[in-house]
Design a protein around this nucleic acid. Structure first.
Length: 934
RNA sequence: GCCGAAGUGGCGGAAUGGCAGACGCGCCGGACUCAAAAUCCGGUGGGGUAACACCCGUGUGGGUUCAAGUCCCACCUUCGGUACCA
């Protein structure tokens, strides 16, 4: 697109596009951008120092991408641009900046592709990485490419395996008292397994040790996904379906590797406190960990030696427990079921097992269950309570058994109502309400009622006090104890897939696990021709028979690690990416860590961030890293949606249906995409221009291939340039907000860059040269003030990461400077430096034209004289009764009474004051005057 | 249901408790051009006026304050997360 002056050009008439005129000196990103990208690469401009000097270090990290086959989408450059701006700004402020990039390249899609086409995942991955690297480089980000890491590189996953061995070699001692490197006293530590005390009654010391490791194997009910041919972690299962692909997941018991993340649950919650993360993300992590305090209570079973232990957060309601419920999978079910009921109970359990988690969640609207025929005894009042089995109780949480208090728990109420079980009140708002009937569960706190026996009376106690009173009573009698539970379970860490890190583990004839010696790392992924999953839980690596046979008595573990493994520690490898002897140098870790700013999508709020923090804490306990938390500050960029779409609805007869009647997935309606000119705003929403009674849907949707609203960064760069793309992504709005894309908006910022360019460059000349109006002269006072204000505002905005407003400030500068016939070079140099972090290519080109020989990347950030921010005179708004009535101009340093006098002297103000009494006068010097009159 | 975030022109958005709507898009008018594009200049919340004046206006309803988009209370809507976790 030609931006020059058409027919006046010495090159003659309308000779079309830049493609035909590559020497055009008008703003031409396609020429400028590759030039400076090549310059930066050749000069290694953004190479970070190996070690930072003194305290000026800054580690700014992007979440590294999974290089998918689809290439970069516009969501990636959003966060990457923000961090790049900050890095470029901070380098100009003299900080030592570490800003690396790499690839999270293990994962299912490459393997799925291999199954379909036979292409080795390594090939697919390499091609995808190349595409991503090219696309990211085309955006001009200032990464230190010498630190690039790839999780699938054996030189990298050697150390992922090494960290796994640290986990394997560690047990958690919750009572260990120690002092951490910062001098803080701590309780609880991951310690070497060699330090584990073996109890005297342990018959098998090795088995005992294995049961205490942070990485251990266990036969557990897992989320098996037949479609994907692998098990999945709890975090990877959403609504009973795989997070990836939405395939059904069933529960089946399997021997799997687990990581004991639950040992760190308290620290993972407590240490959130000091992190500069958004409240939303901290809450998500806390909720996921789901710590709750309560009590375990034992119920004796009538005519049976067994007793049932339940977990409750409301021990204060124990007197209201009118029945017990066991999870169908609870082994006690069979032990206590009476012969008459055994059949029904077994049938119920089998049916529950056959249901996928998805069905179980879906069909949960109505509660199901079966009576076991057995009775337990309520320990506080001796009441005979029936024992049921129902799938609304989960085996995996607490003890897999509950005491049901239908009066004060919604689920229990529903179940009791369905099966005609008794409901009693044991909590009320006031003691006098003890006799009030219950027509719904009342779970709110209040005071205990109807809760006394011969040795304890809770009646009248507020809930919190009742809880501790009854808990002490139970503890004193050995009937129960205070307990803490978490929703978080141990992390299921093995996958039955090929494209992942092999475990550095061999199994002996007794199926006992042993660490592969560190000297043998990495355990390299064997070659394989056939990647097809068997449909049974046997990993594909089993097919590599020679590889599996480690020795006559030892075979290799054939599971692989989940995709999250590599991303748990990649930020540490960046510090020292070429080190063969260690995963990272302890010295460099101490100097660079923690990450000062981490930017990425909120979709990783629980998975990556929780896993990563867990590993880091283990490494911290083992003395491998110096900080308990890896990411000091976290910012989640908001999603970028597609362009706003207007959708109308037609019924089968072709008549328009108003949007409010089209809610839900009504199959009989046809969705019609409308153009902007077909609709008009009316009230809260939009309606058809032709039929204003018909409302239409107006909203931006998530970008998706199926919707066809995906914006390809390559296309944007080809048309408008990387600088415009970067600028637009920042100009859209606050970094953390969800924002709809608009191509018109990209054009807007591209126009701004064109104006900025023409402010400096003579766009009629053959070569890139300064415009005649750019002169080496002093700034006028007006210009100096404008420059100072711009520097001050942009600096403030950068510090606060308000990139949208910083761009506005630069636009205002250009709009004002366009009007000056003479443009002092100094002013334009300052402007160019301010623009550089945002639009580095065009800034470099302008900097060169302004007569500088080298990159501006390390030029000192512009400063300004604060005196220039003050004006001699200010305009002060004058209000009467809070309403703006006039503005008066007064000296900036005018005293309150002088301003008041000036305000009163104003003709318009006087009109509003005539005949009134001034009750009060508020004068904020330099800001405002308000007369309160009546 | 629960937790979190957000509701401001036609649109994206801006406003340490102190002039609501900066900046951009779009639109309207003008300059340049044979014409268009590009570029430049001006205007643009609604009502009202010949033009001023003036009135109304930040999801809704209350409150605090000389002054509220901003603080407090209640509610509505949208988005994100989560959901038998006892």
């Amino acid at each position: 697109m030609r931006l020059g002056r058409g027919g006046n050009s010495p090159r003659g008439r309308d000779l079309g596009s830049n493609e035909e005129r590559p020497d055009m000196p008008s703003y031409h990103p396609q020429r400028i951008e590759p030039k400076w990208q090549a310059y930066w690469e050749r000069h290694k401009t953004f190479r970070a120092p190996d070690a930072p000097t003194s305290k000026s270090k800054l580690y700014i990290l992007d979440m590294f991408p999974y290089p998918s086959g689809a290439g970069l989408h516009v969501g990636h450059p959003e966060g990457y641009t923000a961090t790049d701006i900050l890095c470029r700004y901070q380098r100009m402020r003299g900080r030592d900046v570490l800003h690396p990039m790499g690839w999270d390249a293990f994962g299912l899609p490459a393997e799925q592709y291999a199954i379909k086409t036979g292409t080795h995942p390594r090939e697919t991955t390499r091609a995808n990485v190349d595409t991503f690297r090219r696309q990211i480089k085309a955006l001009g980000f200032s990464y230190d490419w010498d630190r690039e890491v790839d999780t699938t590189d054996p030189g990298y996953y050697k150390w992922t395996q090494w960290i796994f061995l640290q986990l394997f070699d560690t047990w958690y001692d919750p009572d260990y008292e120690w002092v951490d490197p910062s001098g803080a006293a701590r309780v609880g530590k991951g310690r070497p397994i060699a330090e584990l005390p073996i109890p005297e009654d342990a018959t098998d010391a090795d088995a005992y040790r294995d049961s205490k490791r942070l990485a251990y194997r266990a036969e557990v009910p897992v989320n098996w996904c037949p479609e994907l041919g692998t098990v999945l972690s709890n975090e990877e299962v959403v609504d009973g379906r795989s997070e990836v692909g939405g395939h059904p997941v069933v529960r089946t018991p399997l021997k799997q590797w687990m990581l004991r993340i639950t040992a760190y649950a308290d620290r993972l919650i407590d240490d959130l406190e000091d992190l500069n993360w958004s409240r939303a993300i901290k809450d998500m992590q806390r909720n996921w960990i789901g710590r709750s305090e309560g009590a375990e209570v034992d119920f004796a079973v009538e005519g049976n030696a067994a007793s049932i232990r339940v977990y409750t957060t409301r021990p204060d309601t124990l007197f209201g427990a009118t029945y017990l419920v066991l999870a169908p999978e609870n082994p006690l079910v069979d032990a206590i079921a009476t012969p008459e009921c055994a059949r029904g109970v077994a049938g119920y359990r089998d049916a529950a097992a056959r249901k996928s988690d998805f069905d179980r969640a879906e069909l949960s609207k109505t509660k199901t269950g079966v009576f076991t025929g057995a009775y337990a005894v309520n320990p506080v009042n001796g009441a005979r309570v029936p024992i049921w089995s129902a799938d609304y109780v989960l085996m995996g949480y607490g003890t897999g058994a509950i005491m049901a208090v239908p009066g004060h728990d919604e689920r229990d109420f529903e179940f009791a109502t369905a099966f005609g079980l008794p409901i009693t009140r044991v909590v009320a708002a006031r003691v006098e309400d003890a006799g009030l009937p219950l027509d719904a569960a009342e779970s709110a706190y209040g005071v205990a009622v109807n809760s006394r026996n011969d040795s304890i009376a809770l009646d009248g106690l507020p809930t919190a006090e009742a809880k501790s009173a009854i808990t002490s009573w139970l503890e004193a009698r050995g009937l129960g104890k205070k307990t803490v539970q978490t929703k978080l379970r141990d992390w299921l860490f093995s996958r039955q897939r090929y494209w992942g890190e092999p475990f550095p583990i061999v199994l002996d004839e007794n199926d006992r696990a042993h660490a592969v010696p560190e000297s043998e790392l990495p355990v390299v992924l064997p070659e394989l021709a056939d990647f097809k999953p068997s449909g049974r839980p046997e990993p594909p690596l089993g097919k590599a028979a020679d590889w599996v046979r480690y020795s006559p008595t030892l075979r290799r573990e054939t599971n692989t690690m989940p995709q999250w493994a590599g991303s748990c520690w990649y930020f540490l490898r960046y510090l020292d990416p070429k080190n063969d002897a260690r995963p990272w140098s302890r010295e460099l870790e101490r100097l660079w860590m923690p990450v000062d700013l981490y930017v990425g999508g909120a979709e990783h709020a629980v998975l990556h961030l929780l896993y990563s923090r867990f590993w880091h804490k283990v490494l911290f306990d083992r003395g491998e890293v110096s900080t308990p938390e890896p990411f000091q500050r976290l910012i989640n960029q908001g999603m970028i949606l597609g362009e706003v779409e207007y959708t109308g609805f037609r019924d089968s007869g072709g008549a328009w249906v108003s949007a409010e009647h089209a809610r839900g997935a009504d199959e009989s309606l046809t969705r019609v995409k409308l153009e902007e000119e077909d609709v008009v705003k009316k009230g809260e929403g939009f309606v058809l221009a032709s039929e204003p009674a018909v409302r239409v849907d107006a909203r931006a949707h998530k970008m998706s291939k199926s919707r066809g609203n995906v914006i390809n960064p390559d296309a944007v760069i080809a048309e408008y340039g990387a600088d415009s793309l970067r600028l637009y992504e920042m100009f859209m709005g606050p970094l953390e907000a969800v924002k709809p894309w608009s191509m018109k908006g990209v054009e807007g910022v591209a126009r701004f860059l064109g104006r900025a360019w023409r402010l400096v460059i003579d766009h009629d000349a053959e070569e890139v040269q300064l415009d005649d109006r750019v002169r080496d002269v002093e700034l006028t006072t007006e210009q100096a003030k404008l420059v100072a204000r711009t520097v001050a505002a942009v600096t403030d905005d950068f510090e606060a990461m308000r990139f949208n407003t910083s761009i506005s400030r630069l636009m205002e500068f250009v709009n004002a400077f366009q009007g000056f016939e003479t443009r002092p070079k100094r002013a334009l140099e300052t402007f160019t430096l301010l623009l550089a972090p945002l639009a580095p290519h065009v800034a470099e080109e302008m900097w060169e034209a302004l007569g500088h020989g080298a990159t501006l990347a390390y030029e000192p950030w512009p400063s300004f004289d604060p005196a220039l921010l003050k004006d001699d005179e200010v305009e002060v708004p004058v209000q009467v009764n809070g309403k703006l009535r006039a503005r008066v101009v007064v000296p900036a340093d005018a005293a309150a009474d002088a301003i008041e006098a000036a305000a009163k002297a104003d003709e318009r103000v006087a009109q509003w004051l005539v005949g009134k009494t001034i009750r009060k006068t508020v004068v904020v010097p330099g800001k405002l005057v308000n007369f309160v009159v009546s």
